[in-house]
Amino acid sequence: MIGWGVVATGGIADVVTSDMKLVPDAEVRAVSSRDSAKAAAFASRHGIPRSYGDYHDMLRDPDVDVVYVATPHSSHHVVARNALLAGKAVLCEKPLTVSLRDAEDLVSVARKQNVFLMEAMWTRFNPLIRLLRKLVADGVIGSIRSVHADFGEPFAHNPAHRLWDPAAGGGSLLDLGVYPVSLAQMLLGEPESVASHGSLIDGVDAEAALLLRYPNGVSAHLSSSLVGNYPIAATVVGTAGRIEIPPVFYRPTELVVIRPDALPERHTLELHGFGYQYQIAEVDERMTAGDKESPEMPLEETLAVMRTLTEALDQLGVSYP
């Protein structure tokens, strides 16, 4: 059994912890929160044996093998870094950090400590996304010419909410845009150049449209938004057909292969839980094997995605404290 410790007790921690119960080799043994009462309530709700009012105390728990960091973006770096220095494996919510420099630091610390680290880009491990990669690699739709993906939905403007707060790493790109960018780079690699256009509210990107350029005219057209009502769908266009991922592409239950002179080929998935269990199983498998990172979400790719996001944010004029 792999012993898990959860840092933070917000909505994402609640859902992911519930999905951990769907993984036979995962056992949640501790939870921490700055509010000890919240930690105790979370532990009671999920049947977790120990709760802590300070995550440093949880890092000293010998029964915790891997730490899941579910804090706001701005706290990812310090919490994950301390966990790595304590010798704990880390699964850290995306984006790994709010800056490329901090992301590079975490990767460096993980490698020096010889400890497992992975960004929690859970979409990568969904069975249909794994199938997408295989279909593309097998040339089912020929050579890829473009990737289109959008993730946007209206969020009420509230300067006190983390999504609108620069100090909390707010804005659409880091919270939502990381999904389209990660999908595109999973299939096409790091782009030659990035062009971004959007608008700011309270110093964070309320919306962003990205054009990623690749050799020979290949491109990715991506968008994220806190103000627009987007379909949250994705399409991969090839020379011999296309693959469509209906809403919502970050948690797909259907994938459609469309080729000329052929009926659409539909692949479906019946999800149990919310879908986070696949990344939890990946971490357990890698830790059991003694691996220090995941080949499906390698650290170099996390850094590459962060470079793209950083370039886009710089062009939009977003800077975080």
Rank of each mutant, 00 (worst) to 15 (best):
V248S: 11
V147D: 06
L96Q: 02
W4C: 13
G171T: 04
R213G: 07
T253V: 15
E119T: 12
H56L: 11
D63T: 15
L100Q: 07
H76T: 04
S219L: 09
S33H: 14
L84V: 05
G5C: 02
T288Q: 12
V256Q: 02
G170T: 09
S51V: 07
A110D: 06
P321K: 07
V31T: 14
H77C: 04
D25N: 09
V78I: 14
D175G: 06
T9N: 14
Q279W: 02
P246K: 07
V236H: 01
V178G: 05
V109F: 02
K21R: 15
H267L: 08
A220L: 03
A149T: 01
N82G: 13
A156K: 15
S193K: 15
D19Q: 08
D19V: 05
A110V: 07
G198F: 00
N158I: 11
T268L: 11
A234I: 00
A43G: 09
N114Q: 10
D19G: 14
G275W: 08
L132A: 05
R251W: 03
E192C: 08
L131R: 11
L309K: 09
A312V: 13
L309G: 04
D102N: 08
P159W: 10
H46R: 11
P247R: 02
M306E: 13
V256H: 06
S51E: 01
G170E: 12
L211N: 15
G171S: 13
D175T: 12
N114A: 14
R307V: 01
L96I: 13
D291V: 06
M58D: 08
Y55A: 13
S18G: 15
V69I: 14
H76R: 03
I243V: 02
S75W: 06
K112D: 10
A43V: 05
F274M: 12
V318E: 01
V98L: 05
Y68G: 13
G198H: 09
L299W: 04
G290V: 10
V256D: 01
N158W: 08
D35L: 04
P95W: 00
V305M: 05
R259N: 08
G217Q: 05
A208S: 09
G142E: 03
D291F: 02
P264T: 08
L255E: 02
A206P: 06
P166C: 11
S44H: 14
G139R: 04
V78W: 05
D138L: 00
G169A: 06
D202V: 11
L271A: 10
V16D: 00
V78S: 15
T308D: 05
I201D: 09
H56K: 10
Y55M: 11
L188N: 01
S33K: 12
S99K: 07
V147Q: 03
L269I: 06
T9W: 01
L212T: 14
F42G: 08
A80V: 09
E265K: 09
S108A: 12
E254A: 15
R45I: 09
D150W: 06
R34L: 01
P62W: 13
R45E: 10
K21W: 06
Y214E: 04
A220N: 02
